[in-house]
């Protein structure tokens, strides 16, 4: 078989076309490639981004690109239609970027969680509105430069996975494209669980985070190793850390990205303090029920 047809077959099998319109090194297409392998052909995907909506566009499964303000709601309609037609064998995925999930559509995601809609809600988090040109979102971390926070963001990142977990849904988890096996295991679990599943995945955005695209996977891996991006799942209210890496200084993660270039030593110290506090809490609650 010629090389081209070999690849064409691979794209067909992995349900996503090679050569998306995303930037080089974008974590968006990488995320979809990793998870579509588990989701399989009987999947419908409704949603936006991140600006890796350009990735969703290249998916070879039924999908609908939506504006930020339509996260989890159109998918709710799909779930209902499938129930009306007795097609519960189909997995409905609702995807939203960080701005969509944490800001403009947070109420919708919350309402879908409250109704326990049978869908997998994925937050594709690249920590800013990238499609519009790198503007701050509710999921932009403290201190990060964006075009609307030229001096660095003043407020911390919203803890959306914990907010959704308090809706008492069957499954909430965080994941990273730097840990594909872990991510796939979580998707598999979500696929096999009835009700509302929330998966919060960090994807690297070299364009918005200001680093060399070759370092994409390395940067998000650093985030996990520094505990800036802890990997855990909350199943039926019980928290479990799925990875407990040896902790690296958060500075290693911050210094790898120019969006944090301007941070002072005090700010870095403050961030380290926050990370440590959260790490301690997570370790304390590991294996315990965290829903009231």
């Amino acid at each position: 078989m010629g090389l081209n047809s070999l690849f064409d077959e691979y794209y067909e099998k992995s349900f996503i076309q090679g050569g998306t319109t995303c930037c080089p090194g974008c974590g968006g297409p990488l995320l979809w490639r990793i998870i579509l392998e588990i989701l399989g052909s009987k999947t419908i995907i409704y949603g936006d981004g991140p600006c890796a909506m350009c990735a969703v566009r290249n998916i070879k499964l039924p999908n609908f690109n939506l504006h930020f303000s339509f996260i989890a709601d159109t998918a709710t309609g799909v779930v209902a239609a499938l129930a009306a037609k007795g097609r519960e064998d189909i997995t409905v995925v609702s995807s939203g970027g960080d701005g969509a999930t944490a800001d403009i559509s947070l109420g919708k995601v919350s309402a879908a969680a409250e109704r326990n809609e049978n869908m997998i809600q994925i937050c594709v988090d690249n920590e800013a509105y990238m499609n519009t040109g790198i503007q701050k979102s509710g999921l932009t971390p403290y201190g990060a430069w964006t075009t609307t926070t030229p001096l660095g963001k003043e407020a911390p990142k919203k803890d959306v996975p914990m907010i959704i977990a308090q809706h008492n849904v069957p499954y909430v988890t965080t994941a990273s494209v730097a840990y594909p096996k872990d991510l796939q295991a979580k998707i598999r679990k979500a696929k096999g669980t009835e009700g509302f599943k929330y998966i919060h995945v960090v994807i690297p955005c070299p364009t918005g985070w200001r680093f060399n695209p070759a370092k994409s996977v390395e940067v998000v891996r650093l985030g996990v190793q520094a505990w800036a991006w802890p990997l855990y799942e909350i199943e039926e209210g019980f928290l479990r850390l799925t990875l407990k890496p040896r902790q690296r200084p958060v500075e290693d993660y911050l210094k790898a990205q120019n969006r944090f270039r301007h941070l002072t030593d005090e700010q870095i110290q403050y961030i380290q303090g926050e990370v440590d506090r959260k790490r301690e809490r997570l370790l304390e609650f590991d294996g315990k029920r965290i829903i009231l």
């Binding site: 409704y46 209902a80 239609a81 009306a84 109420g107 309402a111």
Partner: peptide, 27 residues
């Protein structure tokens, strides 16, 4: 016999209607 979705606002009502209609349901 119908899937009756008690949504949290009209914006969602129409969005869910769109989703359901694209998936082939009479809405």
């Amino acid at each position: 016999k119908a899937q009756y979705i008690k949504v949290e606002g009209e914006h969602t009502a129409m969005a869910a209607a769109v989703g359901a209609s694209t998936a082939g349901a009479r809405v």
